[in-house]
Structures are given as structure tokens and as C-alpha cells.
């Protein structure tokens, strides 16, 4: 198991295996996202309260879940990189950050587009929206810290410390925002527990599609990182000659 793991983590192997596995992620991702889109836009029955506007749910909620999923992946990868000094783990954290930030942006923007017809304003200081916004700031801080440190090793390790501090803070931020919000206004979110299976499955298809999509994009970015980090290696010469 461990030798296998080390072998996988070695740049040449990883580069090759990632190249081979990308289609296994990207095609199912494409199919699942298309199925989710069709299901969400056409098949799912409309919500009796929100009508067709409800359909924004199918891009909003999966994006929001992805934004948090990617941040935790990033923090776990950063922790592994920091403890075992594994370059590949740092590369995972570095490659995840922009994808996660974009998903966070999507969740915020679609939330805003959903809020306008439902609540009458583009932005509500709703607990979920606010903690999503703070999550975006955490992503931006991570990216900014990485890009402003020249030395790649130090950039990796500094950003990893930041990601870990952020992930410890995330529940504190979330619950304090929920608490703050409950003092100011009643909960405006509808109850998602009441959803029927016909309404739910397109969202699940979308979510799994997004996860596979994340895997595919992550692997492409990781291949770029592996090349960027690998210096003067014979395999690189060989690989690039192809």
C-alpha cells in the first residue's frame, strides 16, 4: 500500500496516470451535468411556492456544496503536505484553490439571482450567503498569499498554514453568522427537507457531475503543477519530446 502510494506520488507516475484518468472523470462529468441540466430544467416538477424560479436551485446548491467540499479537500491536502512534506499534496491544495473560489463565486452569484425574485433584493444578509462570502475571502487570501511569495517551497508551506487556520475557523465563522443572523431576522430559507425525490435527483446528478468535473480540472492543473515543479528531470525531457 505504502509503496504503491509513493509510486503514485512520484511525479513521472503521477503525470502519466493523471493523463490517463482525466477522460474517466471528464466524460462522466459531462454526461452527469447534462442529465442534471435536463432533469432540473425540464423533468423536475415546479415548486408550488416558487414556481419555475425554483430551478436555480439546481446550479446554486451544488455550487455551494462544492465550494465547501473543495475548501476542506484543500485544507486536508495542505495538512498532509505540511506534516509529511509531500509536494504532490501541496500541489493539490494549490490547484484546488482557484476551482473552489470559482464555485464559491457561482454560489454567491446564483444566490443573488435567486434572491431577487424571491426576497425582492439582490442581496440579503442571510447566514448562508454571508458565510459563503467569507469563504470567498478565505479562498482569495489563500491565492493571494501563494502568489506573493516567490519561493515555491515557502509559498506551499505558508499557504498550508493559512488553509489549516482557515478550516479551524470556518465552523466558528459559520455558527457565529447563523447566530448573528437569527438575532436580526427570521430564517428566510425555505425548508429543503420537504423536497420530493423527483425534485432531488437532478440536484444529486449535478452535484456528482460537479465532483467529477472538479476531479478532471484538478488533474489537468496538477499536471501543470508537476511540470512546473519538476526541475531537470530526464523523464520530463522524455515526456515533452512526445
Amino acid at each position: 500500500m505504502w509503496t504503491w502510494f509513493h509510486k503514485l506520488a512520484s511525479p513521472p507516475h503521477f503525470y502519466r496516470i493523471a493523463g490517463l484518468t482525466i477522460p474517466w472523470f471528464s466524460w462522466p462529468a459531462l454526461i452527469l451535468i447534462l442529465v442534471g441540466l435536463y432533469g432540473g430544467l425540464v423533468l423536475a416538477p415546479m415548486d408550488y411556492q416558487q414556481g419555475e424560479g425554483f430551478r436555480i436551485f439546481y446550479v446554486h446548491v451544488p455550487s455551494a456544496i462544492m465550494s465547501m467540499f473543495i475548501y476542506s479537500t484543500m485544507a486536508i491536502a495542505a495538512g498532509i503536505g505540511l506534516i509529511w512534506r509531500m509536494k504532490l499534496a501541496h500541489a493539490v491544495a494549490a490547484a484546488s484553490a482557484p476551482i473552489g473560489a470559482w464555485f464559491t463565486f457561482c454560489a454567491l452569484a446564483t444566490g443573488s439571482l435567486w434572491g431577487k425574485p424571491m426576497w425582492g433584493t439582490w442581496w440579503v444578509w442571510d447566514a448562508r450567503l454571508t458565510s459563503e462570502l467569507i469563504l470567498l475571502f478565505l479562498y482569495l487570501g489563500f491565492i493571494a498569499l501563494r502568489s506573493s511569495i516567490e519561493d515555491p517551497q515557502r509559498a506551499d508551506r505558508s499557504a498550508a498554514v493559512l488553509a489549516l487556520v482557515g478550516v479551524i475557523n470556518l465552523p466558528v465563522i459559520h455558527y457565529s453568522v447563523v447566530w448573528w443572523n437569527s438575532l436580526h431576522q427570521g430564517s428566510t430559507m425555505f425548508n429543503p427537507g420537504a423536497m420530493s425525490i423527483q425534485m432531488k435527483w437532478p440536484a444529486l446528478a449535478m452535484l456528482f457531475g460537479f465532483m467529477l468535473y472538479y476531479g478532471a480540472v484538478l488533474f489537468v492543473r496538477l499536471r501543470a503543477e508537476v511540470i512546473r515543479r519538476e526541475r531537470n528531470a530526464a523523464w520530463l525531457r522524455e515526456e515533452l519530446a512526445r
Partner: peptide, 29 residues
């Protein structure tokens, strides 16, 4: 983290402010 980093002071606020938001919420409250 921002020691010896260029434009460190702006970066520092970007890193620290989101982390202090819970304190701001309860303190102001």
C-alpha cells in the same frame, strides 16, 4: 506568514480580517 512578502500589509488585512469577523459580530453585539 507575510514576513518579507511584497505588499505585505494589504495581504495581511486580506488574510486576517475574515478570521476576525466572528469576534466583530459578538463584540459589536
Amino acid at each position: 506568514l507575510t514576513l518579507g512578502v511584497r505588499r505585505g500589509s494589504v495581504l495581511l488585512s486580506l488574510l486576517v480580517l475574515p478570521l476576525t469577523m466572528p469576534a466583530l459580530i459578538f463584540g459589536a453585539r
